[in-house]
């Protein structure tokens, strides 16, 4: 029982990482219908930002705190630049966007290899985050994973508040619901798109900072997460946050419990089968915006 609980907690923390990554994807996918394969490289950018900052700021705790906003900015600006240079030209061809951004992701990975070297690098976690908390009953919670969980929940909260309360959020929701109507109502949809891309990519950067606490930093670290994150978006449904939140945690827990009871490789296959089975029941994902369009 304790093992199951410990595994579930690991799963929840995996889910938190997936959630941080998928939040940005569900925003951009939901609003613009584009699949950004370079999203994984924004995670990598966030992680390398942490690494670089730690070289100039010796205190691990302080550098982590500074890294969060800086990584958000770095990854966000990269995303906005990508949107401006390429993606806005391809809105009518979402599937092609997938391939084009995959090309961008290849180049960014190589860029990271050229700048930082092919081998993985490591950062030091602050002492506070390397401890464990024992809850009792043999259940221990790693502080780093608790931190990631908190970060993910905070991001969801912040994003919800932005979407619900700010003028920008109102515009974003309008564009998601009906782009044409939003445009004739005087919303500069192009500018809204760029802001959405900025926020979504920035969240990937934050996810990158979080990932430095649990794993190595390398040029291909983004690819490991991007497929799972897209599956979260597919299952959760697009355009709404609650679907992503539920799905990310569900997939994370399912994955880690299965990994414990079988093996990592079998778990991957079972999760995929489960997803295809789930789509038989809800092909549009858990939650969807109901529209009158046929597609």
């Amino acid at each position: 029982m304790t093992v199951i609980l410990n595994q579930s907690f690991t799963g929840i923390s995996i889910g938190a990482v997936l959630l941080l990554i998928a939040l940005g994807l569900t925003l951009t996918f939901g609003q613009m219908g584009v699949i950004n394969m370079a999203h994984g490289e924004f995670i990598m950018a966030g992680a390398y930002t942490t690494y670089v900052l730690q070289k100039s700021i010796s205190s691990a705790g302080l550098s982590l705190l500074v890294a969060l906003p800086v990584a958000f900015l770095v990854a966000g600006l990269m995303g906005a630049l990508l949107e401006w240079l390429l993606i806005r030209r391809l809105y009518t061809r979402p599937l092609d966007t997938l391939l084009v951004t995959w090309g961008v992701s290849l180049m960014l990975q190589q860029l990271a290899r050229d700048i930082f070297g092919a081998p993985n690098v490591q950062t030091h976690a602050p002492d506070l985050l390397t401890d464990n908390i024992s809850v009792g009953g043999g259940i221990t919670l790693a502080n780093s994973r608790l931190f990631i969980l908190g970060l993910a929940l905070l991001s969801v909260l912040a994003l919800t508040l932005i979407l619900r309360l700010t003028p920008l959020g109102r515009r974003i929701r309008a564009v998601v619901q009906n782009r044409d109507l939003a445009e004739v109502s005087g919303i500069a949809t192009g500018r809204v798109d760029r802001m959405t891309f900025f926020i979504g990519s920035g969240l990937a950067g934050v996810a990158g900072v979080a990932l430095t606490l649990v794993g190595p930093i390398g040029p291909t670290m983004g690819t490991n997460y991007i497929v799972d994150a897209f599956l979260v978006v597919v299952v959760g449904g697009i355009g709404q946050l609650k679907g992503s939140v539920i799905t990310a945690f569900a997939l994370g827990v399912l994955q880690s419990v299965l990994e414990y009871s079988t093996t990592v490789s079998v778990a991957k296959v079972v999760v995929l089968v489960a997803i295809v089975a789930f789509l038989q029941w809800r092909p549009q994902g858990l939650y969807t915006l109901r529209t009158r369009s046929l597609a």
Binding site: V104, S105, L106, M107
Partner: peptide, 8 residues
Amino acid sequence: TYFQGLLF
């Protein structure tokens, strides 16, 4: 790798 990315 750059070339391949550019090709895409």
